[in-house]
């Protein structure tokens, strides 16, 4: 149920608010109107399309897991430390958020590329990252992790240390406090951050095409496929874009429902 805006909202605010909503809604609707629905099925079920969708879902899932693995500890460290070093670390970690993804891709090349900083080391270890699915995952993790860190850090700061302090005086060591108090209390923020990170992984384009290349089934994720189709078959590009919109909407809807139940339970 949507209620009318309360009186505390100035009426004039509704105009730019509506324009903002339209700016997002109109292009999506336009896309749905342009697509040739009779051709939609064949367009999105071609081998190239299904390969791209499957690759996108796989890499985005793995990347999101990596974001959680590294992002949760980072967020906790950032939320619970102060001082110049923490500020510096925060700026550094959030850098991919403000960088154009292409720049991220170039930076990743300088680090993990064949002639990059770690290229020789990786070579000795027998790891070939360039043009592999691993490169896609690294690129996605690189650009998406700040979304998780930012969202979780905010939740951790909002939750404060009050409950953690209580837990400590009840005899819970740092690990127990983290597991049984810190994380459960920040769960809504963690869920929101995970969704954002997953969506960002799914949409990642610039860093991937720069760092990982583009090959069907290996590195050509859905956004790369869409961009390529734009050259050859614009109708297919529109159809695939709609698929991506659909997946994104589905993810957001699912987690929103889940989060609402979590929040209802936690307050």
């Amino acid at each position: 149920m949507t209620r009318l805006p309360s009186l505390t909202i100035p009426r004039w605010l509704l105009v730019p608010a509506a324009l903002g909503a339209l700016l997002v809604a109109v292009p999506v609707v336009a896309m749905a109107l342009t697509v040739d629905w009779r051709e939609f099925g064949p367009l999105v079920t071609s081998e190239a399309s299904t390969d791209a969708l499957w690759l996108s879902l796989r890499t985005a899932s793995v990347s999101t897991l990596l974001c959680l693995l590294f992002g949760i500890p980072l967020a906790v460290v950032l939320a619970r430390t102060t001082g110049a070093a923490a500020t510096l670390l925060r700026s550094l970690v959030l850098l991919p958020l403000v960088l154009p993804p292409v720049v991220g891709g170039i930076a990743l090349l300088q680090a993990f590329g064949r002639r990059g900083l770690l290229g020789d080391t990786l070579d000795v270890l027998g790891l070939e990252i360039a043009f592999s699915t691993t490169a896609v995952v690294i690129a996605q993790t690189f650009v998406a992790m700040p979304f998780l860190v930012l969202s979780l850090e905010g939740a951790l700061r909002a939750a404060g240390t009050r409950f953690e302090d209580v837990a400590a005086t009840l005899g819970a060591g740092p690990t127990t406090v983290f597991r049984r108090v810190t994380l459960p209390l920040a769960l809504p923020g963690l869920v929101a951050g995970t969704v954002l990170a997953f969506a960002r992984c799914l949409g990642e384009f610039g860093a991937t095409i720069t760092f990982a290349g583009s090959l069907q089934g290996t590195t050509r994720t859905l956004p790369l496929e869409i961009y390529l189709q734009r050259e050859g078959d614009p109708q297919a590009a529109v159809a695939l874009s709609l698929v991506l919109v659909g997946v994104a909407v589905l993810v957001i809807a699912l987690t929103r429902a889940r989060r609402d139940s979590l929040v209802a339970g936690a307050t």
Binding site: R162, V166, L185
Partner: peptide
């Protein structure tokens, strides 16, 4: 053990 002003029960 510390018993605070607000109960600070773990909400979850």
């Amino acid at each position: 053990a510390l018993l605070a002003q607000e109960a600070r029960l773990f909400p979850h």
